[in-house]
């Protein structure tokens, strides 16, 4: 069954058309990758899925698990199981990472009718996940993303994803700024979450990431449209040939 269904999505930002008719169906258990040049609308798609303000949907629909996703506020989307690992996570001074994580976990638990996580359980959980992701334990004592290196920010995004166990996760260029070791660790984190009830949309610029997170489908996006879809081999083709011919087509 389709977990997420994007139909003929048109989006404009400040009167400028960015997405020009995106259709994409992702079933539970699948990993899709979107590749495409800069400025083509990949982050726009991510942000529209997550519910950021400032994007005008002029046509089309997005449904998640049969619900009209676009009608839900961002927090409700997240609690329903949608997650976006941001391309550029913001730094929020004064808000400690651990307090933030706990609040987010409890928001989800409340929705599920579960009791709040207790302090010990929380620490144990975060410690275990930190270890797997190579995150130093004292990182969560620091203000959220403040002064984190590019790589630390990306790991922190994956940590959040791991803790919140979303049903559908979008990773927006989570690989950029990561060295090869970090890339492996982050990919392992994603792969550990793969399963029959979850789906992923992995946005990347480079084929490299897809060696570690092997997708079921690859889509090429250019000029606000999906211009080609195929299996994982499409990624190799793109790596070899570049986006030029798709740009012309768009």
């Amino acid at each position: 069954m389709a977990l997420i269904e994007i139909k003929n999505l048109h989006v404009s930002v400040q009167g400028k058309d960015i997405l020009k008719g995106i259709s994409l169906t992702i079933n539970a258990g699948e990993v899709h990758a979107i590749m495409g040049p800069n400025g083509t609308g990949k982050s726009t798609l991510s942000n529209v899925i997550a519910g950021r303000e400032g994007y005008e949907v002029t046509q089309g629909s997005v449904s998640f698990d049969g619900q009209d996703l676009l009608a839900m506020p961002p927090d409700a989307r997240a609690r329903a199981g949608v997650f976006l690992a941001f391309q550029y996570p913001v730094e929020i001074p004064g808000v400690s990472t651990s307090a933030f994580l706990k609040t987010a976990i409890n928001a989800k638990r409340r929705t599920e009718g579960k009791p709040e996580i207790d302090a010990m359980e929380f620490l144990k959980l975060v410690k275990a996940k930190n270890k797997a992701l190579g995150i130093p334990d004292d990182m969560i004592k620091r203000p959220l993303n403040v002064g984190f290196s590019g790589g630390e920010k990306k790991r922190a995004e994956v940590l959040q994803m791991t803790l919140l166990e979303p049903r559908f996760a979008v990773l927006d260029e989570t690989d950029s700024g990561l060295d090869i070791d970090a890339l492996k660790i982050v990919s392992d984190g994603v792969n550990a979450l793969r399963g029959p009830t979850r789906a992923f949309l992995v946005i990347t610029h480079y084929q490299r990431l897809l060696n570690y997170i092997v997708p079921d489908y690859v889509h090429v996006m250019a000029g606000g449209r999906i211009v080609k879809s195929g299996g994982k081999e499409l990624a190799y083709e793109l790596e070899a040939e570049g986006y030029t011919k798709y740009l012309a087509a768009a």
């Binding site: 976006l84 941001f86 001074p93 004064g94 808000v95 928001a107 929705t111 919140l164």
Partner: peptide, 24 residues
């Protein structure tokens, strides 16, 4: 938006940000 994208409701998120602003 960042806080809300993690499932935190708007009122709680605002209070966290004000608190964070002052805790700094």
């Amino acid at each position: 938006f960042y806080l809300m994208a993690r499932g935190i409701d708007a009122d709680t998120a605002r209070a966290m940000l004000v608190s964070g602003f002052l805790e700094d």
